[in-house]
Nucleic acid binder design. Structure first.
Lengths: 119, 119
DNA sequence: CAGTATCCTCTATGATACTG
DNA sequence: CAGTATCATAGAGGATACTG
C-alpha cells in the first residue's frame, strides 16, 4: 500500500463508504490507520481528517478506547496491541476490496469503470 | 466453525452487534451465510431469521444484489462467485473476533468474562 | 409466495458555538 | 488544546397491514 497523506482521507477522494464492510463508526478506521504512524494528539488527528467535527472525533476515539483498540498516551493516543491486530484485519478488508473493486463497481453500474484510490 | 442452525441467528444468542466490523447492513451477513448452504427462497430465509421483517429482508437482498454478491435463481437466491469470496472474508472477520473476543469483552467490562457463541 | 406500503423510533452524522 | 453542548437531518431498523 502506498503511504498515507492527508489527502488520502478526503472523503471525495477516498470512497471508503463503498467498502462492503465497515468498522464500528465512520471515522474509526481512519483514526486507526493514522495512529499506525505513531502517537497523535486530538488536534493532530483533526488536521489530518479535514472533514471531521470535534464531536465525531471524540466519539470515534471513545469507541476505540472502550474496546481496547487505542489508549491515551502522554502525547495523545496510541494503538494497543489489540488495535494493531484489528488494523491488520482492516488492511485485509482493504486488500480484498481493492482486488474486487472492479467487480463491485461493475455490478453497481455496468457502464462505468473506476479503480480504488487511496484506500 | 461449527455448523449453523436457526438458533445461530437468534439475536439474543448471537451478539454479532459486538463485532468490531460489520457489513453493509444488519442482516446482509446472515443472508450471505445462509446462502452458503445452497439456494434459498425469500420465505425460507425468513424462517431462518425469525427476528427479521419482510422489509428488512428485502433491503438486505437488494443491497447484496446491487453489489453482485447474490443473484436471483430459479428457486430463490444464490451466491455469486464474488459473494463467496466476500463470505470468505467475512469468515476471517469472525475468526479474528473469536480469537480476540475475551480481550474486547474485557476492555468493555473488566469484571465479566464471556466467550463468543454461534458466531 | 414474495414482496410493498406505512408509521414510528432511535441512532449516526454533521454543523457550529461554547468552555476549562 | 481538548474537548462538551446544542440543534438539526437522514437513514436504519422494527412492527404491521396490505397486495398481485
Amino acid at each position: 500500500m502506498h503511504p498515507t497523506t492527508p489527502l488520502t482521507f478526503d472523503e471525495e477522494l477516498c470512497p471508503s463508504s463503498m467498502l462492503p464492510v465497515r468498522m464500528q463508526n465512520k471515522w474509526a478506521p481512519f483514526v486507526l490507520r493514522l495512529l499506525d504512524h505513531g502517537d497523535q494528539s486530538f488536534n493532530a488527528l483533526r488536521l489530518k481528517l479535514p472533514r471531521i467535527g470535534p464531536k465525531e472525533l471524540t466519539r470515534a476515539l471513545r469507541s476505540l478506547e472502550r474496546d481496547g483498540f487505542i489508549t491515551p498516551s502522554p502525547t495523545g493516543y496510541r494503538l494497543t496491541p489489540l488495535g494493531r491486530s484489528l488494523l491488520a484485519l482492516l488492511l485485509d478488508v482493504y486488500a480484498w476490496t481493492t482486488e474486487h473493486w472492479d467487480e463491485i463497481v461493475d455490478a453497481r453500474d455496468p457502464d462505468s469503470a473506476q479503480s480504488p484510490s487511496g484506500l
